[in-house]
Simulated assay, not measured.
Amino acid sequence: MTAQVLPELQMSAPRPVRPGQGPPVSAPVVAATAWRVLVVDPDIGDPLADQLRRHGHEPVGVTQGSAALQRHADADLVLLALELPDLDGLEVCRAIRSVSRVPVIIVTARQSELDCVLGLQAGADDYVTKPYGTRELMARIEAVMRRAQWQPTAVEEIRHGSLLIDVNSRRVSVDGAEVALTRKEFDLLCLLASYPDTVVPRKQLLKQVWGDSWSRRTVDTHVSSLRGKLGDSGWIVTVRGVGFRLGHR
């Protein structure tokens, strides 16, 4: 699994209510956190998008699985239908999960227990059947995102072959020899080492290590520097078109 990106988005402000009046029917329901939601469904309708916006989220709709594979990296959450015109929804889910930890909720008319099991085995975080209530869907979104944000107690040390990362002291050594890294080089290496044998998308590395302050070649420059300091280019493997993963020397 790759690292989860925690976005910093602004929430919608509630509409003011005049004295003596109740809240207007269309008053927005402010969610605890606003999310960018990729809705993958050939039957995308305005009601779902409107409800997501009303709860403070930013919906983006696509109708095909191929489009979902291209755009999921920009999303904080994916609502995925299984009935897609070009690809099987389960295959889309597996493909997303192979390169990303973005939360996926399957939203489908398939109601059998087997379909639910297959969806969860494909990597979905939750499975919702149609028809569903808006409150239920929003509650499930909040529950899934809470789980995605939860972080276990930070490890003090990461070992990967002859590579040793002391997280607390921010020291790195290879074969017992200390390697001097810059702050960003350490952050980049520590993030990759936290998810060994997993591809971390380039855009996710940029967001988590550099935030909003970065240039197009920032990751490439730091990866090249890290490879040189670690003494072997095999420590960081480039997965073309996707990102990077920690390798084996």
Rank of each mutant, 00 (worst) to 15 (best):
V179I: 13
E178R: 14
R170F: 00
N168M: 10
E157P: 04
Y195I: 09
P201G: 03
A177P: 03
A180E: 12
L188D: 04
V155S: 09
V199F: 08
E157M: 13
P201K: 06
A154E: 15
V174T: 07
V174G: 00
D175N: 15
G161H: 05
I158P: 02
P201M: 01
C190V: 04
V167N: 06
T198Q: 14
Q204A: 14
L163V: 00
R202K: 14
E156S: 15
K203Q: 14
P152H: 09
T198C: 13
L191S: 08
F186L: 09
Q204Y: 02
R171Q: 12
I158G: 03
D187Q: 15
E178K: 07
G176C: 01
E185I: 05
D197H: 12
F186I: 03
R202H: 11
D187Y: 07
P152T: 05
S194I: 02
K203I: 07
E156G: 13
A154T: 12
D175F: 09
S169M: 10
V172C: 07
R159P: 04
L191K: 00
D166R: 15
R159A: 08
L163W: 00
I158N: 04
V174L: 05
A180W: 02
Q204K: 06
F186T: 05
L164P: 01
I158E: 02
P152I: 01
S169T: 13
P196G: 03
D175T: 07
L189G: 08
L188M: 11
L191M: 12
L188T: 09
L192M: 04
R159L: 11
I165S: 02
P196F: 02
Y195P: 05
Y195G: 02
A193V: 10
E178I: 00
L181Q: 04
E185K: 05
D166K: 10
